[in-house]
Amino acid sequence: MTVTLPRILDPFVSLGRFALLLARAFRSVAELGRYSKNIFEQMVRIGIESIPIVALAALFSGAVTTVQTAHQLVSPFIPVSIIGAVVVPSVILELGAVVTGFLLAGRVGARIAAELGTMRVTEQIDALEAMGLNSVGYLIVPRVVAGVIMFPVLYIVACVVAIAGGIFVGHYTGEVPAGEFIAGAREFFRPFDAVFGLIKSLVFGFVITAISCYKGYYTRGGAEGVGRATTEAAVTSCVYILLADLILASTLL
Protein backbone atom coordinates (compact mmCIF):
# COMPACT_ATOMS: atom_id res chain seq x y z
CA MET A 1 0.00 0.00 0.00
CA THR A 2 1.12 3.55 -0.61
CA VAL A 3 1.70 5.47 2.53
CA THR A 4 0.49 9.05 2.55
CA LEU A 5 3.11 11.23 4.16
CA PRO A 6 2.35 14.49 5.91
CA ARG A 7 2.95 17.55 3.73
CA ILE A 8 5.73 18.79 5.96
CA LEU A 9 7.87 15.98 4.57
CA ASP A 10 7.32 17.09 0.95
CA PRO A 11 10.82 18.58 0.56
CA PHE A 12 12.33 15.26 1.61
CA VAL A 13 10.09 13.36 -0.76
CA SER A 14 11.24 15.64 -3.59
CA LEU A 15 14.85 15.23 -2.59
CA GLY A 16 14.44 11.48 -2.55
CA ARG A 17 12.81 11.41 -5.97
CA PHE A 18 15.51 13.72 -7.32
CA ALA A 19 18.20 11.42 -5.96
CA LEU A 20 16.51 8.36 -7.44
CA LEU A 21 16.20 10.05 -10.83
CA LEU A 22 19.88 11.00 -10.72
CA ALA A 23 20.79 7.45 -9.77
CA ARG A 24 18.82 6.20 -12.76
CA ALA A 25 20.55 8.76 -14.95
CA PHE A 26 23.97 7.62 -13.75
CA ARG A 27 23.08 4.02 -14.48
CA SER A 28 21.99 5.08 -17.96
CA VAL A 29 25.35 6.70 -18.68
CA ALA A 30 26.47 3.28 -19.92
CA GLU A 31 24.11 3.73 -22.88
CA LEU A 32 25.62 7.11 -23.69
CA GLY A 33 26.98 5.90 -27.01
CA ARG A 34 23.46 5.19 -28.24
CA TYR A 35 22.41 8.75 -27.63
CA SER A 36 25.49 10.57 -28.90
CA LYS A 37 23.40 12.28 -31.57
CA ASN A 38 21.11 13.67 -28.86
CA ILE A 39 24.07 14.94 -26.86
CA PHE A 40 25.40 16.81 -29.85
CA GLU A 41 21.98 18.27 -30.56
CA GLN A 42 21.63 19.41 -26.95
CA MET A 43 25.14 20.88 -26.94
CA VAL A 44 24.08 23.08 -29.84
CA ARG A 45 20.78 24.05 -28.21
CA ILE A 46 22.09 24.58 -24.72
CA GLY A 47 25.53 25.88 -25.60
CA ILE A 48 26.00 27.36 -29.04
CA GLU A 49 22.57 28.98 -29.19
CA SER A 50 23.17 30.63 -25.80
CA ILE A 51 26.37 32.39 -26.87
CA PRO A 52 24.75 35.65 -28.08
CA ILE A 53 22.75 36.31 -24.91
CA VAL A 54 25.63 35.25 -22.66
CA ALA A 55 28.03 37.52 -24.56
CA LEU A 56 25.63 40.43 -24.36
CA ALA A 57 25.12 40.07 -20.62
CA ALA A 58 28.87 39.61 -20.09
CA LEU A 59 29.72 42.67 -22.16
CA PHE A 60 27.51 44.89 -20.05
CA SER A 61 28.43 43.42 -16.68
CA GLY A 62 32.15 43.80 -17.53
CA ALA A 63 31.62 47.39 -18.65
CA VAL A 64 29.50 48.35 -15.65
CA THR A 65 31.89 46.74 -13.17
CA THR A 66 34.76 48.72 -14.66
CA VAL A 67 32.92 52.02 -14.53
CA GLN A 68 31.72 51.44 -10.98
CA THR A 69 35.10 50.26 -9.74
CA ALA A 70 36.64 53.39 -11.22
CA HIS A 71 33.97 55.42 -9.43
CA GLN A 72 34.78 53.78 -6.08
CA LEU A 73 38.54 54.16 -6.40
CA VAL A 74 38.80 57.83 -7.15
CA SER A 75 41.95 58.90 -5.33
CA PRO A 76 45.22 60.37 -6.48
CA PHE A 77 47.00 57.85 -4.25
CA ILE A 78 45.61 54.77 -6.02
CA PRO A 79 47.07 53.90 -9.43
CA VAL A 80 44.38 53.34 -12.07
CA SER A 81 45.84 49.96 -12.94
CA ILE A 82 44.16 48.75 -9.72
CA ILE A 83 40.89 48.93 -11.62
CA GLY A 84 42.09 46.11 -13.86
CA ALA A 85 43.33 44.25 -10.81
CA VAL A 86 39.86 44.44 -9.24
CA VAL A 87 37.64 43.93 -12.29
CA VAL A 88 39.35 40.92 -13.82
CA PRO A 89 39.34 38.70 -10.70
CA SER A 90 35.72 39.60 -9.92
CA VAL A 91 34.74 38.63 -13.44
CA ILE A 92 36.70 35.39 -13.34
CA LEU A 93 35.74 34.43 -9.80
CA GLU A 94 32.16 35.51 -9.59
CA LEU A 95 30.50 37.45 -12.36
CA GLY A 96 31.43 35.23 -15.29
CA ALA A 97 29.98 32.12 -13.70
CA VAL A 98 27.08 33.55 -11.73
CA VAL A 99 25.71 35.95 -14.33
CA THR A 100 25.94 33.19 -16.93
CA GLY A 101 24.32 30.80 -14.47
CA PHE A 102 21.33 33.04 -13.77
CA LEU A 103 20.87 33.77 -17.41
CA LEU A 104 20.97 30.11 -18.36
CA ALA A 105 18.68 29.11 -15.51
CA GLY A 106 16.09 31.12 -17.45
CA ARG A 107 17.09 30.32 -20.95
CA VAL A 108 18.15 26.69 -20.66
CA GLY A 109 16.38 25.60 -17.48
CA ALA A 110 12.97 26.88 -18.50
CA ARG A 111 13.32 25.39 -21.94
CA ILE A 112 14.25 21.95 -20.66
CA ALA A 113 11.42 21.91 -18.13
CA ALA A 114 8.85 23.09 -20.67
CA GLU A 115 10.01 20.56 -23.23
CA LEU A 116 10.07 17.56 -20.91
CA GLY A 117 6.93 18.74 -19.11
CA THR A 118 4.99 18.87 -22.35
CA MET A 119 6.31 15.46 -23.30
CA ARG A 120 5.15 14.13 -19.94
CA VAL A 121 1.62 15.54 -20.06
CA THR A 122 1.07 14.46 -23.68
CA GLU A 123 2.27 10.94 -22.76
CA GLN A 124 5.29 11.13 -25.06
CA ILE A 125 7.52 9.99 -22.19
CA ASP A 126 5.17 7.05 -21.57
CA ALA A 127 5.33 6.33 -25.29
CA LEU A 128 9.13 6.16 -25.14
CA GLU A 129 8.99 3.82 -22.17
CA ALA A 130 6.24 1.70 -23.73
CA MET A 131 8.43 1.20 -26.79
CA GLY A 132 11.11 -0.24 -24.54
CA LEU A 133 13.34 2.82 -24.60
CA ASN A 134 14.98 4.21 -21.49
CA SER A 135 13.41 7.67 -21.29
CA VAL A 136 15.93 8.85 -18.72
CA GLY A 137 18.83 7.80 -20.91
CA TYR A 138 17.23 9.29 -23.98
CA LEU A 139 16.01 12.60 -22.55
CA ILE A 140 17.82 13.48 -19.35
CA VAL A 141 21.36 12.17 -19.74
CA PRO A 142 22.07 14.04 -23.02
CA ARG A 143 20.80 17.31 -21.54
CA VAL A 144 22.83 17.04 -18.35
CA VAL A 145 25.98 15.92 -20.17
CA ALA A 146 25.58 18.74 -22.71
CA GLY A 147 25.12 21.22 -19.85
CA VAL A 148 28.20 20.04 -17.99
CA ILE A 149 30.29 20.25 -21.16
CA MET A 150 28.95 23.52 -22.53
CA PHE A 151 28.64 25.66 -19.39
CA PRO A 152 32.41 25.95 -18.95
CA VAL A 153 32.64 26.93 -22.62
CA LEU A 154 30.02 29.61 -22.11
CA TYR A 155 31.84 30.72 -18.96
CA ILE A 156 35.05 31.24 -20.95
CA VAL A 157 33.14 33.21 -23.56
CA ALA A 158 31.55 35.31 -20.81
CA CYS A 159 34.89 36.07 -19.15
CA VAL A 160 36.62 37.04 -22.38
CA VAL A 161 33.76 39.28 -23.47
CA ALA A 162 33.30 40.84 -20.03
CA ILE A 163 36.98 41.69 -19.70
CA ALA A 164 37.05 43.04 -23.24
CA GLY A 165 33.99 45.13 -22.41
CA GLY A 166 35.72 46.44 -19.29
CA ILE A 167 38.87 47.36 -21.16
CA PHE A 168 36.91 49.01 -23.94
CA VAL A 169 34.67 51.12 -21.71
CA GLY A 170 37.50 51.99 -19.33
CA HIS A 171 39.63 53.14 -22.20
CA TYR A 172 37.04 55.18 -24.05
CA THR A 173 35.57 56.85 -20.98
CA GLY A 174 39.08 57.86 -20.06
CA GLU A 175 38.86 56.15 -16.63
CA VAL A 176 41.72 53.75 -17.26
CA PRO A 177 43.87 53.32 -20.39
CA ALA A 178 43.80 49.81 -21.83
CA GLY A 179 47.52 49.30 -21.15
CA GLU A 180 47.16 50.17 -17.46
CA PHE A 181 44.06 47.96 -17.09
CA ILE A 182 45.84 44.96 -18.56
CA ALA A 183 49.03 45.60 -16.58
CA GLY A 184 47.01 45.73 -13.34
CA ALA A 185 45.09 42.59 -14.24
CA ARG A 186 48.27 40.65 -15.04
CA GLU A 187 50.02 41.70 -11.89
CA PHE A 188 47.32 40.27 -9.64
CA PHE A 189 46.28 37.33 -11.80
CA ARG A 190 46.14 33.96 -10.06
CA PRO A 191 45.66 30.95 -12.32
CA PHE A 192 43.65 29.15 -9.65
CA ASP A 193 40.94 31.79 -9.98
CA ALA A 194 40.29 30.64 -13.52
CA VAL A 195 40.27 27.00 -12.48
CA PHE A 196 37.86 27.84 -9.70
CA GLY A 197 35.60 29.69 -12.15
CA LEU A 198 35.60 26.70 -14.48
CA ILE A 199 34.69 24.37 -11.62
CA LYS A 200 31.85 26.71 -10.66
CA SER A 201 30.46 26.83 -14.17
CA LEU A 202 30.64 23.06 -14.46
CA VAL A 203 28.74 22.66 -11.20
CA PHE A 204 26.18 25.28 -12.26
CA GLY A 205 25.73 23.46 -15.55
CA PHE A 206 24.94 20.30 -13.66
CA VAL A 207 22.67 22.03 -11.14
CA ILE A 208 20.59 23.82 -13.76
CA THR A 209 20.14 20.93 -16.18
CA ALA A 210 19.58 18.30 -13.49
CA ILE A 211 16.99 20.38 -11.60
CA SER A 212 15.19 21.40 -14.78
CA CYS A 213 15.10 17.84 -16.08
CA TYR A 214 13.71 16.69 -12.74
CA LYS A 215 11.01 19.38 -12.75
CA GLY A 216 10.07 18.65 -16.34
CA TYR A 217 10.19 14.88 -16.07
CA TYR A 218 7.78 14.81 -13.12
CA THR A 219 5.36 17.42 -14.45
CA ARG A 220 1.71 16.75 -13.66
CA GLY A 221 -1.51 18.41 -14.65
CA GLY A 222 -1.69 19.67 -18.22
CA ALA A 223 -0.76 23.14 -19.44
CA GLU A 224 -0.90 24.60 -15.95
CA GLY A 225 1.47 21.91 -14.74
CA VAL A 226 3.92 22.69 -17.52
CA GLY A 227 3.80 26.37 -16.58
CA ARG A 228 4.42 25.54 -12.94
CA ALA A 229 7.29 23.19 -13.78
CA THR A 230 8.91 25.81 -16.00
CA THR A 231 8.76 28.51 -13.34
CA GLU A 232 9.94 26.16 -10.64
CA ALA A 233 12.84 25.00 -12.80
CA ALA A 234 14.11 28.56 -13.33
CA VAL A 235 13.56 29.70 -9.74
CA THR A 236 14.88 26.57 -8.05
CA SER A 237 17.93 26.56 -10.32
CA CYS A 238 18.72 30.17 -9.32
CA VAL A 239 18.40 29.38 -5.62
CA TYR A 240 20.65 26.35 -5.90
CA ILE A 241 23.19 28.31 -7.93
CA LEU A 242 23.49 30.74 -5.03
CA LEU A 243 23.82 27.89 -2.57
CA ALA A 244 26.37 26.04 -4.69
CA ASP A 245 28.30 29.29 -5.16
CA LEU A 246 28.61 29.76 -1.42
CA ILE A 247 29.53 26.14 -0.76
CA LEU A 248 32.20 26.16 -3.47
CA ALA A 249 33.65 29.46 -2.35
CA SER A 250 33.88 28.40 1.27
CA THR A 251 35.37 25.00 0.53
CA LEU A 252 37.71 25.68 -2.37
CA LEU A 253 39.04 29.16 -1.68
Binding site: M119, T122, E123, Q124, D126, A127, E129, A130, M131, G132
Partner: peptide, 16 residues
Protein backbone atom coordinates in the same frame (compact mmCIF):
# COMPACT_ATOMS: atom_id res chain seq x y z
CA UNK B 1 9.44 -7.35 -22.97
CA UNK B 2 7.82 -4.03 -23.84
CA UNK B 3 9.03 -4.37 -27.39
CA UNK B 4 6.31 -6.99 -27.82
CA UNK B 5 3.76 -4.28 -27.20
CA UNK B 6 2.42 -1.52 -29.38
CA UNK B 7 0.55 1.19 -27.51
CA UNK B 8 -1.79 3.75 -28.99
CA UNK B 9 -2.02 6.52 -26.41
CA UNK B 10 -5.09 8.64 -25.93
CA UNK B 11 -3.75 11.74 -27.66
CA UNK B 12 -1.51 9.76 -29.99
CA UNK B 13 1.63 10.86 -28.10
CA UNK B 14 3.54 11.42 -31.32
CA UNK B 15 6.91 13.06 -30.82
CA UNK B 16 6.31 16.59 -32.01
Amino acid sequence: LRRNFGVLFQGGALFD
